[in-house]
Design a protein around this nucleic acid. Structure first.
Lengths: 200, 200
DNA sequence: GTCTATATGCCGATAGAC
DNA sequence: GTCTATCGGCATATAGAC
């Protein structure tokens, strides 16, 4: 890897860390430069302005964020596919909490800088996976639920452990970095979503 | 209501709207003053600085946010209690999306201005409700799940429709303001969490 | 309580040497 | 590619009259 690529990567990583904690406006270029160990002017050599840097971070992140959903295919056993998806997303929450939070922040603010890029690919991808889920239901391999809401529930529950990490820690005293807690979270989410909480 | 109280309330409301969309640092006092229809200097008469205004907004919000959980009591039928909770939280997401988003943003950033006030009351309240859920499980009225994670799943799934509203709209084309979509969301979440998705 | 005017500091961005 | 120096603008906050 060339030196300039290493620097770019270091800046992007520092930007992700800082933006995800303080937001676009709460972060100064100085802060990012300091963390990436480059000078402020040098940073402007690599990214011509703050917004370009911010959007670059988002673009990398979107690709990473969408990847797990692409794995859903009709041939899979739905219960196992959902199990796998929960695990992968939970691993993402554990290993990439900054990405998860920045994505959440951007969407929450109306995705002003990502909406156009987000909308179409997201819509198309989900449309496709909705069809897969519906076909599972039609084949009787999955209980009849509205596919959209299943997808939303999977997203929401798994991301919660990254986005609300502070709250989870305040309440449960642990985070996903604790292997025992990770396992417990995984099997609890599997149970709740797959089996439900009604006693049988 | 005295005129000064009306103004305070107008400023708080404008602050909530603006902070929830642009964040603490992304919002200028000018913006809030404009929306609340007061002058900037006048705003400083009511709130001595920006952070005090921000914290005032958060404090009002925390009380509102915690209220639904207080309703869980051991005497209730657990399935009905969970059903009610989902409905109330979903109504909150529909009727107070700005509150939901600002809370999410603050927690996501590590709740720097609320952690001390959040931690203790939240921990105590949840501890208490965890015990209620556990007793339901012990009585066989609820399937054996880790109570913490049930609470997190309820929070996550219901708040998702406010916090990720833009994404929900991009994917499903509707929001909770659409009465049909609200009903569909409500019954889907009830189904998923209470019955699960495994066919029977 | 509300206004006009203004102080003050930070931060994004550029100029220009090396 | 990297540096030093600096500009210019915006936003918080205050002074002081009414």
């Amino acid at each position: 890897m060339r030196n300039s690529e290493k620097k770019r990567a270091a800046i992007l990583e520092a930007a992700l860390t800082t933006f995800s904690q303080y937001g676009l406006h709460g972060t100064s270029i100085d802060q990012i430069a300091l963390l990436a160990d480059v000078s402020k002017t040098n940073l402007f050599y690599y990214f011509s302005n703050k917004e370009e840097l911010y959007v670059s971070v988002l673009r990398e992140l979107l690709d990473l964020w969408l990847r797990p959903l692409r794995a859903f295919t009709e041939e899979q056993d739905p219960i196992q596919a959902i199990r796998d998806y929960i695990r992968v997303k939970l691993e993402f929450s554990r290993d990439h909490p900054a990405e998860s939070r920045l994505f959440c922040m951007e969407v929450m603010q109306g995705a002003p800088l990502m909406l156009t890029e987000l909308q179409q690919p997201l819509h198309d991808l989900v449309e496709n996976k909705i069809a897969v889920i519906q076909s599972w239901i039609d084949q009787g391999k999955l209980a009849p639920v509205e596919p959209y809401h299943l997808v939303f529930s999977l997203w929401a529950t798994t991301q919660h452990y990254a986005d609300f990490r502070v709250q989870v820690e305040a309440v449960a005293g642990k985070t996903l970095e604790d292997p025992g807690f990770f396992q417990e979270t995984l099997s609890s989410l599997e149970t709740i979503i797959i089996e439900g909480v009604r006693p049988r």
